[in-house]
Design a protein around this nucleic acid. Sequence first.
DNA 1: ACGCTTCCTTGCGAAAACGCGTGCAAATGC
DNA 2: GCATTTGCACGCGTTTTCGCAAGGAAGCGT
Lengths: 290, 290
Amino acid sequence: MDAQWDDLKTILVVARHRTLAAASRELGLNYTTVARRIDRAEAALGVKLFERLAGGYNPTEEAELISRHAATMEAANHRLMRELGGRDARLSGPFVVTAPQLLIAHVLGPVLDMFSEAHPDVDLHLKASNDLLDLDRREADLAIRISHNPGDHLTGLRLTEQQSASFATPDWAARIVAAPEGPVDWLVYDQLGEIPKNVRVTTPPSRIRMRFDDMVAMAGAAQAGLGVARMPMFLGRALPELVQVPCLPPQPYLDIWAVAHPDVWPSAKSEAFRRVLRAHFKEVRSVFVA
Amino acid sequence: MDAQWDDLKTILVVARHRTLAAASRELGLNYTTVARRIDRAEAALGVKLFERLAGGYNPTEEAELISRHAATMEAANHRLMRELGGRDARLSGPFVVTAPQLLIAHVLGPVLDMFSEAHPDVDLHLKASNDLLDLDRREADLAIRISHNPGDHLTGLRLTEQQSASFATPDWAARIVAAPEGPVDWLVYDQLGEIPKNVRVTTPPSRIRMRFDDMVAMAGAAQAGLGVARMPMFLGRALPELVQVPCLPPQPYLDIWAVAHPDVWPSAKSEAFRRVLRAHFKEVRSVFVA
DNA sequence: ACGCTTCCTTGCGAAAACGCGTGCAAATGC
DNA sequence: GCATTTGCACGCGTTTTCGCAAGGAAGCGT
């Protein structure tokens, strides 16, 4: 008395997404296959698992029950994968790193170069993503994150502290030098929809011209001369169209961390990568602070 | 980052049995297939899982690690199967009952007859087995057991109390009547290798001629006239070659229980079967006691 | 009301998984 | 010491599973 475990996984994913299409994307399968697996499971268990509606698959009570237990199995599987990764002593095979796009573009280049030269047998996967990948599920082995702590139950190595400053095009800089108290058009990054108060208070005669939920977009706008933007030092310095302007003195910004799940942390590849990271960040520390 | 769950199950079973052959029997697969799955998993995980020895497969540390977590998944799966069985309201589909051979042979016949007549859509599987099947793993939905309590964490219905008495062939009976204090050859059932003391003390001039670990075998020996055997009333009465002899007065024996895992207990088929059981045992109660 | 998108079903050819038979090595029994 | 049993590896033909493409129904915005 034992079901096909892969079919249980399929039921779990379909019950979560409530459509074959979304489930098949996650499973890396064709949705035809997913549909067939559901059919097979229903036949094997003698239970109807989903209502086939036009807009998707609606799980029955039985499917919910299965999903609950399959979730337990999934958790065990994730933990297994992490521990397996953590005790991997090889310097070969896949290694997945996730980092913010901007860090990869402007900071991490030499790190990646050095690491792949030093360990050619590792096939390094980079996931440039601003949204936090799930390290519990081992969607990545190591994450570079910009925050003030490693995060919940994760282990972290602080690579550097950071400062932010205000940057704009050279003609904005000239205008500000000419009239230091004159009005300034601010470009504001508010991922959370909230206005940073230090920006507001220090610039009474100025206005917030635009808000962005994406740093790349904001930097682009600054480069196009739309206004003055507060951004991490490393970014402003990396963009040749921008110069630092004295609107806002350099101020503390979020740190940069290398974080991993404690299960995965001790793996050989992770240690090797962190070694390269630490060396490089030590070397280029001056890029991040005034 | 997610392995093939069925392959994890395969690894678990192979690691348990340590041979492909045994594992394949449990999995209901050809061992070629099992070997291929192991190969595939090793390739996918990039880890050697088993040492291929002539006498079997020896799990590596990694395989042990996988097995531990796969065992968690297996437990979740078993629990799922039980709960799914327990909430099954249908009176159709498979239903597995296990019972001692002797009870099936001499007592349960009418029960099975009535049940299958009343519920023709149920396909009833009978596992005649003396060793306790694992109800946690749902190797059976319901078990008929001869013991003094339902067992650890199982739910039970006591079908009847029982008495045992001594039985032998008619000529043994005649001999005992002729010389009530004369020596008796005892046939003893000692599944645990231990001599029941009540047999010993009550028959000082007699000897224990033979021991059996199997009641069927002992009954056969008694039928062949090898001696006097203590056995449940229902069995002695069911065997036409035997008569009850006054060597040992009827005395309490183990009860007969219908037991099931509490998760499975409430299923419709289980309730229906218990209803038939209860009725029948009530009717034939006099078979079990003096 | 119309096209567009999303999603599911069905049929067909390709690919992967599977079972069977043969051959071989080691352990077991006489 | 030799036969028997047990267990694994390899090659072949079959079955099952899978992905692709076409067809159809329902929701959404214009």
